[in-house]
Simulated assay, not measured.
Amino acid sequence: MVSSYEDIHFLEETLGFWKQLNQSQKMKLQNIIIKKSFLPGESMHSNSEYCSGLYLIHTGQVRAYIVSESGKEITLYRLFDRDVCIFSASCIMRNIAFDIHVEVEKDTTTFLIPTPEFQKLSDEVIAVQKFTNDLMASRFSDVMWIMEQALFTSFDKRLASFLLEQSVVDASEELKITHEKIANHMGSAREVVTRMLKYFQNEGVIELQRGTIKILNRKLLERWSNSYGSNNT
């Protein structure tokens, strides 16, 4: 249940359709919302068969990813404060059936709108349908960009881009992340990641430490990300 001014303000900011609801609908939504907290490594959503509902990320960080038949993971997108996880409610959308996993990366607090209630609200209010469609379009755009990168961009450029993105996420030039975790994000093998990181280190772009990757030359890494490398490892 949501009752505090801060929580209601969060709903107003996060749900683009909030102002289109009548007072009764707002009160009902406040009463059925479930507050949930997750720890790093926990799963928020594991497959298309279980449709928990619409997760609103209050604080924290999660990633949505898929797993290939061979067991390789690739991150589709990440969610942060005030983002909405639509794929955890994908069962309300017709003709969309796929296995997607949502894993918590940092301590995360959420508000969950259960599927039946969200479905009913969507049937009653056109603004909710538009919100859902716009959100799905945005997420699929993210997915298509990732697939385009995986298929048509050389691995060195993808890895450089990932390291730059991770430094923004961590707000640091020292990245506390394992080679295995990077491989999971990028849909690659750990050995491939390690080999390319060592190449970056030999070029003076980064420094590899135990459990840490330190960016030494950000400008060169940015050049690499844009057009510098050509190794399709």
Rank of each mutant, 00 (worst) to 15 (best):
A89R: 00
S90G: 10
Y55D: 09
Y77W: 12
E49V: 09
S70M: 08
S88C: 14
N47Y: 05
I74E: 05
E73N: 13
S68G: 13
R63V: 04
T59Y: 14
N47E: 14
E105G: 06
L79T: 00
E105I: 11
I66N: 01
E105F: 01
I57D: 01
S70Y: 04
V84S: 04
V102G: 02
S68P: 03
G53K: 06
I96Q: 09
R63I: 00
L76G: 10
V104F: 01
E69T: 03
H58W: 07
L76Q: 07
Y65W: 13
H101G: 03
I86E: 09
F87V: 07
Y77Q: 12
N95P: 04
A64Q: 12
F98V: 13
M93S: 14
T59N: 15
F98W: 02
E73C: 10
G60V: 02
E69F: 14
F98G: 04
G71M: 09
H101I: 12
D99W: 08
I100E: 03
R82I: 07
I57L: 15
H58M: 09
K72C: 05
S68E: 07
S52P: 03
H101E: 10
N47M: 05
I66V: 15
S88M: 09
Y50D: 13
I57R: 00
A64C: 15
R78P: 03
Y50M: 12
E105L: 15
C85I: 08
S52K: 14
R63Y: 06
E103C: 11
F80C: 07
G60W: 07
K106P: 04
G71Q: 14
A89K: 00
I57E: 02
R63S: 05
I74Q: 07
I66H: 02
S46N: 14
F87G: 04
G53Y: 10
T59A: 06
A89T: 08
C51A: 03
Q61M: 07
C91D: 07
G53H: 11
C51K: 07
Q61A: 08
I92S: 06
R63A: 01
L56E: 01
E69R: 11
E49A: 08
I74T: 04
E103Q: 03
G53F: 02
I92Y: 05
Y50A: 12
S70W: 02
S90V: 09
I100A: 03
C51H: 05
